[in-house]
């Protein structure tokens, strides 16, 4: 038994020797924050040739942290692990084009939305969905209007293979509405479903309009286009916000104020047009 305790002690010491970083703050006013992002969702958040995160949300975060006078750093994490990693303290804030939804609000808090951006399909220009001429923006909360349109799209996507990013509301949406007519494949990143669309393994991809536009601007996607209406609300919740642990209320309040200020003085509009080529400022 004595040897067992010795053994356990050695193991514990070895593990403890791994350098760890305690946060510089506890429950009072935060002085620093680590921001978790995906780094594979251009132009919202992606990485440059050195692996450094850049994009709309990185610039926005830098601006917000300047307003709050706190020190911010970034950590990369696959999208499906963002919320678990936030909960275990890998970082303090999620800024990764994450929708504010009721289900997520059960486990973490969100700031007020800093962007609202519809989601839609991208398909080959000669496919039935692209030729159907469906456009506009649909509110998923309004079933009477959206129902018939989705039924029409179902017929157009019958037998097709749709690629969606795993652990996203996009996946939930496509599963709910098209699982009975189409094959759905889940990808870890949107970059991977883009590669598979270009390779011809997929007939359609479903993501936010702004990120689709960035993908389709590349030369190898000249035969593809955004098609069908853009969808907002409903399963996509109340827009895109920053995720924060429930207990970090001080940090949440600071972010809310900073976002409010960034909306009011046009910073979000400016960054959004610069990176996303359209204005996603929430009303």
């Amino acid at each position: 038994m004595n040897r067992l305790t010795q053994f356990a002690a050695v193991v514990a010491l070895t593990l403890a020797a791994v350098p760890f970083v305690p946060r510089g703050w506890a429950d009072d006013k935060p002085t620093s924050a680590v921001i978790g992002t995906e780094g594979a969702y251009a132009p919202w958040n992606f990485t440059d040739a050195g692996g450094k995160p850049v994009g709309f949300e990185m610039d926005l975060a830098t601006d917000l942290c300047g307003r709050m006078k706190i020190k911010c750093s970034f950590v990369l994490q696959d999208f499906d692990g963002l919320i678990p990693a936030l909960q275990v303290g890998k970082f303090d804030v999620i800024m990764a084009a994450m929708f504010i939804t009721d289900k997520r609000l059960e486990v973490i808090n969100f700031t007020r939305p800093y962007a609202i951006d519809p989601s839609g399909f991208a398909v080959a220009k000669d496919s039935p969905l692209a030729k159907a001429g469906l456009t506009g923006t649909l509110d998923l909360g309004d079933a009477a209007t959206t129902g018939p349109v989705i039924d029409k799209m179902k017929a157009l996507l019958k037998g097709k293979t749709i690629g969606v990013q795993a652990a996203t509301k996009h996946l939930d949406f496509v599963k709910q509405n098209f699982a009975d007519v189409a094959t759905i494949r889940e990808y870890k990143t949107t970059q991977e479903h883009d590669l598979d669309l270009a390779a011809g393994r997929l007939d359609a991809i479903f993501a936010q309009r702004t990120t689709l536009a960035a993908t389709l601007a590349k030369p190898e996607f000249s035969a593809y286009a955004v098609a069908g209406p853009g969808f907002v609300k409903g399963v996509f919740g109340r827009g895109t916000g920053a995720g924060i642990r429930k207990k970090d209320e001080a940090l949440l309040a600071m972010f809310n104020d900073a976002i409010g200020a960034a909306i009011a003085d046009g910073t979000i509009k400016k960054l959004s047009i610069q990176w996303l080529k359209s204005d996603v400022t929430p009303p």
Partner: peptide, 22 residues
Amino acid sequence: SIITLLEVTSIAQQLTSETFRA
């Protein structure tokens, strides 16, 4: 699991992202 096949690890990742109980 990384190339969209739904085997055990892939399902584990799905479950984690649904329930956040890694």
